[in-house]
Design a protein around this nucleic acid. Structure first.
Length: 824
RNA sequence: GCCGGAGUGGCGGAAUGGCAGACGCACGGGACUUAAAAUCCCGGGGGGCCGAGGCCCCGUGUGGGUUCAACUCCCACCUCCGGCACCA
């Protein structure tokens, strides 16, 4: 008898057999109810890290469990294959991004297979394949056609050292991720997706996602950032212009004492007094050289400059000075802010710094604020004052009343504003899907006709960090003919943000080889939405928001029938070592390769599922892994040891008593517990329950002489271990299942049911409390009535002793659990 | 600052308002062994009493509260982690 589980032989054997049998292939129109289990697909960075292992181990448990519960489970895997690291590798090591990417895919696919994950590999694809990005481009055209893809000049992040633009996610704490140089801003013409058109629905429909973690929903809400207020116009004195301002506090309009424009506000030039032009221009230049990030950092000093103009507050008829200031953002609202120092902390600080008047228009209940005595703005509720007809009104009510008044006078209107900005999708990069647009001198900007897709990425390109797309230097790519007039034209050389590729991939798995459309509608209707989506919380905003946006748009144009793509979302925690996220710089990386070669896939998976619940961060422990390996060996030894005894045994009868019945009870209690725990994603406690069952089998074998053992009960226990363990440790389970004499895969078994009759204990321990403190224990049949429980408790000598001379005022009983005697 | 999440043994973690610490790690004891490893069995929150069978007190970040009963619910606060952050 082998003493240690020969994992490498067995894992290889079953992986080969599963593949030959097509165990994980699922047909699109399988008669069983559908279940779409999806894990976020990886970027092919080189090799798997523990975060991947965790993500895919979790998904695999769900997929296997749902399969055993009778669902047709779609469980696919692919590659988010476009992106910057490939291009950086090209610059650094002289490898072509395409070759680099495909090599990595080949390697990582092999690693995933070694983990024994239940993917239908026929559905695999990579987003960098023309068969995929053709449809990414096609989808771009749909956005373009519907006016949701447009080009405008916008400030972007720029690294002066690398001479390139950077994606927002490559800017870490205001500096270039690669060379740490502070990032500046540059105005460039860029492509955008008009996600702001969907702000309202993206926000409101968060309510339709009960299966998402609260945390993620809140993050999305904050990101979209809805606020209600009023748009108010302020006429400029001695000038025809009006300054529109957005405010969430129309109730404070009577307290406006100045006005501030963003430095890049279009009116600034016109309104600046001639004698101030020079200093204003200087101020603007300084502000522009700062990145938006450092300009808006919370601790940045507020700086402003009077530009020599005044505008009128129509409500009061007063004129107020116009400033420009670094803290006003052109991108939010109207790029202009009214200053109410008494009731806004920023305005208060600004007013104090520049000696602007402070006018109190909201008085706190019970007291009266004196502007000169104030040390901070008063931002809470109160009664309106110095506000003409609104004096004495509560300010909450005042917000509505003032807005209505503005609308009546034609000076302003109610408005909802979102913080969400349009999605900048163009990248001056090579390794992405080319934007399918052509520029013709005669005909202007034109979409590439659908029949001409894909716009292929050329292979021979020089990767120099010039700040412009490497495609610009590729003449064969750039020069083309105009789809309208047939004359010479040039292609757009920017590529798309890779987040676009990953915003629709979950549709593609349903029909990965479809050539005439991005997907087969019937198959999308069959499988979508994704029933369970699993991935890291770092995608809580970007990827998940973009995917929701895509789905809503696709529904609007009739390409899919669903409103939300992911019904349930599980965000797994990070894998830590020594309390910190694993990283090269910290040198605390544990490689999956090494762990798998030493312990095998089952142990690796088991540990990562056992060490913490999925949502929480997981602290890596080499000793913990050792413990899981020990456990699987323990399972291996006991099942093999009892094989001769149980191999021929039939299932146990229902009339067992004593230890044999106790063993059956444990088996069925475990089935119940594991089933419920998996459903709630409490994999760690599910595994601990199986451990308890295994411990129970050991004790049974240790204490009960063989003649007294019921082989059926023992067999049932052993095979239950194999079945319950199969989603977590698929290889060892399969091997033991086969050794128990079964010819079909354990993974094709229906999930076991428990017998409720077997859960019942003959006697249960009932705790006896006096005033809530445990003072004794009694054994009773579980069905004992409260009266019986109380009587039995009061028969206990120790309890009588403690109660002597005291008056019982009340007895609380919980059937099968406790008796609490309350005394005075 | 705002919004989330979390604070439980030496460690990872468990507990529909009902015996706090399941399960695992580490540790200690025993069995097996010439010995070690491996394995199997047993014991471990802290403190105290003891007639050795047990018994008592304290204990889930802090302070209050609700309740027969609170890790669990409510109020206030502290610490850590994550997200957003001059959003008008």
């Amino acid at each position: 008898m082998e003493d240690r589980y020969p994992f490498s032989r067995i894992e290889e054997k079953w992986q080969k057999r599963w593949e030959e049998e097509g165990l994980y292939i699922v047909d699109d129109f399988d008669a069983r109810p559908k279940y779409y289990c999806l894990e976020m697909f990886p970027y092919p960075s080189g090799k798997l890290h523990m975060g991947h292992v965790r993500n895919y181990a979790i998904g695999d448990v769900v997929a296997r469990f749902k399969t055993m519960r009778g669902f047709a489970v779609l469980h696919p895997m692919g590659w988010d294959a476009f992106g910057l690291p490939a291009e950086n590798a090209a610059i650094k090591h002289g490898v072509h991004p395409r070759d680099w990417t495909w090599e990595n895919i080949t390697f990582m696919r092999e690693q995933l297979k070694q983990l024994g994950l239940s993917y239908d590999w026929r559905r695999e694809f990579a987003t960098c394949h023309p068969g995929y990005y053709q449809w990414t481009q096609w989808l771009f055209l749909q956005f373009y056609r519907h006016g949701l893809a447009y080009k405008k000049k916008a400030p972007v992040n720029w690294c002066p050292s690398c001479a390139t633009v950077l994606a927002n996610e490559q800017v870490v704490a205001g500096a270039c991720e690669r060379c740490k140089t502070p990032v500046t801003r540059r105005e460039l013409k860029q492509w955008f997706f008009k996600i702001t058109d969907y702000a309202r629905r993206l926000l409101e429909d968060i309510d339709k996602l009960p299966g998402w973690p609260e945390k993620v929903k809140v993050m999305q809400e904050n990101w979209i950032g809805r606020s209600e207020g009023a748009l108010v116009t302020f006429p400029v004195l001695d000038h025809p212009a009006e300054i529109p301002v957005y405010t969430t506090r129309p109730d404070t309009l009577y307290g406006v004492t100045y006005m501030v424009l963003a430095p890049e506000h279009p009116l600034v030039k016109e309104l600046t007094a001639p004698e101030l032009k020079e200093s204003v221009a200087e101020f603007i230049e300084r502000a522009q050289n700062l990145s938006e990030l450092s300009r808006t950092a919370g601790d940045a000093e507020k700086e402003g400059l009077f530009i020599g103009a005044y505008c009128e507050n129509r409500l009061t008829g007063e004129s107020v000075p116009v400033f420009i200031a670094n803290y006003v953002l052109m991108e939010y609202g109207t790029g202009a802010v009214m200053g109410v120092p008494a009731h806004d902390q920023r305005d208060f600080e600004f007013a104090r710094k520049y000696n602007l008047p402070i006018k109190v228009v909201i008085q706190p209940p019970g007291t009266e604020l004196q502007p000169d005595a104030m040390i901070e703005a008063y931002v809470d509720e109160g009664i309106m004052a110095n506000s003409g007809p609104f004096n004495g009104m509560g300010n909450i009510e005042g917000m509505k009343a003032v807005t209505a008044y503005l609308e009546e006078k034609g000076w302003g209107e109610y408005q909802v504003t979102y913080r969400l900005r349009d999605w900048l999708i163009s990248r001056q990069r090579y390794w992405g899907a080319p934007i399918p647009i052509v520029y013709c001198e005669k005909c202007g900007t034109l979409p590439v006709p659908e029949r001409d897709l894909p716009v292929l990425l050329p292979y021979d390109v020089a990767f120099k960090p010039t700040g412009e797309s490497p495609l610009k230097d590729c003449r064969e790519f750039v020069s083309t003919t105009c789809p309208s007039c047939g004359g010479p034209a040039s292609r757009e050389t920017d590529t798309m943000d890779t987040f676009i590729c990953s915003s629709w991939y979950y549709f593609r798995y349903t029909s990965p080889r479809e050539e005439n459309a991005p997907w087969d509608r019937a198959k999308v209707d069959r499988w979508l939405p994704v029933d369970q989506y699993i991935g890291g919380v770092e995608h809580a905003i970007l990827h998940l928001l973009y995917s929701r946006f895509f789905t809503k748009f696709l529904r609007d144009i009739g390409l899919v029938g669903i409103e939300e793509p992911f019904t349930n979302l599980l965000t797994q925690g990070m894998v830590l070592k020594d309390g910190a996220k694993m990283s090269k710089s910290k040198g605390n990386i544990v490689s999956p390769e090494e762990i798998m070669s030493r312990y095998g896939a089952d142990t690796t998976r088991l540990f990562i599922l056992f060490a913490a619940p999925p949502e929480r961060d997981l602290e890596w422990s080499d000793q913990g892994v050792e413990g899981c390996a020990r456990f699987l060996n323990r399972v291996w030894r006991i099942v093999n040891a009892i094989l001769p005894e149980v191999k021929k045994a039939a299932m146990p009868k229902n009339d067992l008593v004593g230890v044999n019945r106790e063993l059956r009870r444990l088996t069925h209690v475990t089935i119940k517990k594991v089933t419920e725990d998996i459903e709630r994603f409490n994999f760690n406690t599910a595994i601990s329950a199986v451990m308890e069952l295994v411990n129970g089998i050991y004790q049974f074998c240790d204490r009960v002489p063989e003649v007294d053992r019921d082989p059926g009960a023992l067999r049932e226990a052993a095979q239950t271990v194999a079945v319950l363990l199969s989603p977590f440790a698929p290889h060892i389970s399969e091997e033991l299942w086969a050794r128990l004499g079964y010819k079909t895969s354990v993974h094709r078994q229906p999930w076991p049911d428990y017998d409720p009759d077997l859960l019942v204990q003959e006697k249960v321990t009932v705790v006896v409390q006096i005033n809530g403190k445990v003072r004794g224990r009694i054994m009773l049949p579980p069905a004992a009535t409260p009266q019986e429980m109380q009587d039995e408790a009061l028969r206990e000598p120790r309890i009588r002793e403690l109660l002597a001379g005291r008056t019982m005022s009340k007895v609380v009983t919980v059937p099968g659990r406790l008796v609490n005697i309350v005394v005075k």
